[in-house]
């Protein structure tokens, strides 16, 4: 079922980097960003046309700001689109995102090299 979801996404968003067999990712976080968008779409948070328009806006903005548009930054735009859409839809505010980002940073900082990084209540300063 996850590949069916993905097939719908790649059909709706032609710009998704792919080869003959489907989407490809340069790093694990890209796959996480991809999977989050699929899941939020499935939950009805946005439609694919809505997503495509928001992503196109994001890419235009980035290009205007000097993004080389070589494809390497595609999922950075994807992530920015996600953050923007969830804020606009009232799902997650930019402020909350920032708080959790800092908490993860704190968690990484106190975690010894090579150990799994876990988020704990005390990471929220």
């Amino acid at each position: 079922m996850s590949t069916t979801l993905a097939a719908a996404a790649t059909a709706a968003i032609p710009s998704i980097p792919r080869d003959d067999d489907g989407p490809v990712f340069r790093a694990p976080w890209e796959a996480h960003a991809f999977a989050m968008a699929l899941t939020l779409h499935e939950r009805g948070v946005f439609t694919w046309p809505e997503w495509a328009a928001a992503l196109a806006d994001e890419i235009k903005r980035a290009q205007a700001a000097g993004d080389p548009d070589t494809g390497e930054t595609y999922y950075l735009h994807w992530l920015a689109t996600l953050e923007g859409l969830v804020a606009r839809k009232g799902v997650v505010s930019a402020e909350t995102l920032h708080r959790y980002r800092d908490a993860w940073d704190h968690a990484a900082d106190r975690t010894p090299h090579g150990k799994p990084i876990e988020l704990r209540p005390e990471d929220f300063g």
Binding site: M1, S2, T3, L5, A6, G22, P23, F25, P28, W29, A31, H32, A33, F34, A35, M36, L38, T39, L40, R43, V45, L79, L82, E83, V86, V91, V92, T96, L97, H98, Y100, R101, A103, W104, D105, A108, L119
Partner: peptide, 29 residues
């Protein structure tokens, strides 16, 4: 990575995302 983790944690806490479902998508790839 910090931004991705932040978003994923919040969406999970709010019930928008099931870690197992997310993992299934990632595993498919």
């Amino acid at each position: 990575e910090l931004r991705v983790r932040a978003l994923e944690t919040i969406l999970t806490e709010k019930g928008y995302v099931e870690p197992a479902a997310l993992d299934a998508i990632i595993q498919a790839y």
